[in-house]
């Protein structure tokens, strides 16, 4: 049993649990009051996520508003058992950005008869998901800045490995190994969850 959550503060975990609660209320009651707290937390973050790519304040503001509108609309689809509001909102922001650039990102369909389901029992999965968000945050806090920087460039700037290597002036292999080390760390922290 390893409950060490090095780096991720308890206050942060509480704030996250509160986000899960608020989002469920929005999904159920369409409560604007509950949504306001979510908005005030995520709006500046999504704006800066959008600005990383648009480099334009106005466009970033518009994409942020679109994202928060989608979050408001889809709140009822968020599964509280999944526990990770930030990851869920990230995927919505990412998809808004993909649409804005008129790109396509084909996705699998969990209801497709050819879909191969996970063999983990749903009950275990729920339990895992709740811990997972917490463990991920803790593990992220222990990553060296050079690894976080590469991840930020990949997720926020949408930079390819070779673009990152060029921008940082390091060999491609260095970028690949930083990413590999980062995900090895995240994966092992998740595997240690039980």
């Amino acid at each position: 049993m390893n409950n060490k959550n090095s780096g991720g503060s308890e206050a942060e975990d509480l704030a996250k649990a509160e986000m899960v609660r608020l989002l469920s209320i929005v999904g159920r009651d369409r409560s604007a009051d509950a949504f306001e707290a979510i908005f005030r937390f995520y709006a500046p973050r999504i704006r800066s996520f959008m600005a990383a790519k648009t480099k334009d304040r106005q466009a970033a503001e518009e994409l942020m508003q679109e994202t928060m509108t989608a979050v408001w609309n889809k709140a009822g689809q968020f599964d509280p058992a999944r526990g990770n509001v930030s990851a869920w909102i990230y995927t919505i922001a990412r998809n808004v950005r993909i649409d804005a650039y008129r790109r396509k990102r084909p996705e699998f369909d969990m209801n497709d008869p050819a879909f191969v389901a996970d063999d983990v029992a749903p009950a275990d999965q729920e339990f895992q998901q709740i811990q997972e968000a917490q463990l991920l945050r803790g593990a992220m806090a222990t990553l060296p800045e050079e690894q976080l920087d590469v991840l930020r460039r990949a997720f926020f700037d949408e930079a390819s490995h070779s673009t990152i290597a060029r921008d940082l002036g390091v060999p491609l292999g260095t970028v690949k190994s930083r990413i590999r080390l980062a995900f090895e760390k995240l994966r092992s922290s998740l595997e240690g969850r039980l």
Binding site: R45, S86, A87, W88, Y90, A93, L148, F155, F183
Partner: peptide, 18 residues
Amino acid sequence: HAMEGAAGALLDKADESA
């Protein structure tokens, strides 16, 4: 899923107070 979780954690840290 873990990667999207990492991206979510980065989003949390992308605070620009406004």
